[in-house]
């Protein structure tokens, strides 16, 4: 048995050590350029056929591409693994994280895994794999809204805001400003995204991104079930809300009843000390 670890960027490689250790197999790691799923699968199919396990960090990109590859290889797939029981048995969340399933696999398997489920150990050195292939999908526009902030999925600290931020400018100034001072990623509730305060890709929750940082700060977030499903694996959840009865306080490790406009700047200063 042998693992092929696929990194779509350096951050993936840096976060893969824990999974590789848990799987306990000999591993090769490659890093490859971004390409549509069909091209990705065509480029890799031959190489991948030499491995029993093909794995990548969970992301929208890896789900798009790795499931296509599993289709080409006609093999099993495990999405969002958070634990390894054996090389043919994995734990993964189902029903938006409200339950954990143990899944047994038969034969070759493609895996996407959440690094938060595994030990933090050194990353893996990934060799460049530059094969590209033609795709049936022609990319005509790429709008990257990245602001140089850490990626939500891998950030150690995430600061999220909800609808009380009222406007996109305020959201950016208050939540974005705090995040930048802490080197944190920015997240948002579905309500904030739906009301245009925050862009789509920042949505955290059952229908958005699942995060598991060391520190999750929820500012002006009531704590809907669907939001909580996306943050409950965070190591420390801090809630700041003016409503003492907000459900977020039931799930938060540390809660402070207060106005985020006052609390966040003070907290920023105190944490810097």
């Amino acid at each position: 048995m042998k693992l092929l670890l696929i990194a779509f960027n350096q951050s993936d490689a840096d976060q893969s050590g824990g999974f590789i250790q848990a799987l306990g197999l000999e591993a090769d790691a490659i890093i490859l350029p971004s390409q549509p799923a069909d091209a990705f699968a065509a480029s890799l199919a031959e190489k991948a056929s030499g491995y029993t396990h093909i794995a990548a960090v969970s992301s929208m990109q890896s789900k798009d591409a790795m499931a296509y590859l599993a289709g080409v290889l006609d093999c099993a797939m495990v999405t969002d693994a958070i634990g390894v029981v054996s090389p043919s048995s994995f734990k993964r969340p189902i029903f938006a994280g409200s339950m954990i399933a143990t899944v047994e696999t038969e034969g070759q398997v493609v895996i996407t895994f959440r690094p938060s489920g595994f030990a933090k150990v050194d990353g893996v050195a990934a060799a460049a794999f530059d094969t590209t292939s033609p795709s049936k999908a022609i990319v005509t526009n790429e709008a990257k809204r990245g602001t140089g902030r850490p990626d939500l999925g891998s950030a150690k600290i995430v600061v999220s805001g909800g609808r009380p931020l009222k406007t996109a400018d305020q959201f950016e100034a208050v939540i974005g400003g705090f995040a930048d001072s802490m080197g944190a990623a920015v997240g948002a509730t579905r309500a904030a995204v739906d009301s245009g305060i925050a862009p789509n890709e920042l949505q955290v929750g059952q229908t958005g991104k699942v995060v598991a940082p060391d520190l999750y700060i929820a500012a002006g977030i009531s704590g809907s079930t669907q939001h909580m499903a996306g943050i409950k694996d965070s190591k420390l959840i801090v809630a700041i809300n003016t409503d003492a009865n907000a459900p977020i306080f039931e799930a938060a490790d540390l809660g402070l009843v207060g106005d985020l406009y006052q609390v966040l700047p003070e907290l920023q200063n105190l944490l810097k000390q």
Partner: peptide
């Protein structure tokens, strides 16, 4: 996408 939007 993970970082924004892509048109194909």
């Amino acid at each position: 996408t993970d970082t924004g939007e892509q048109t194909v």
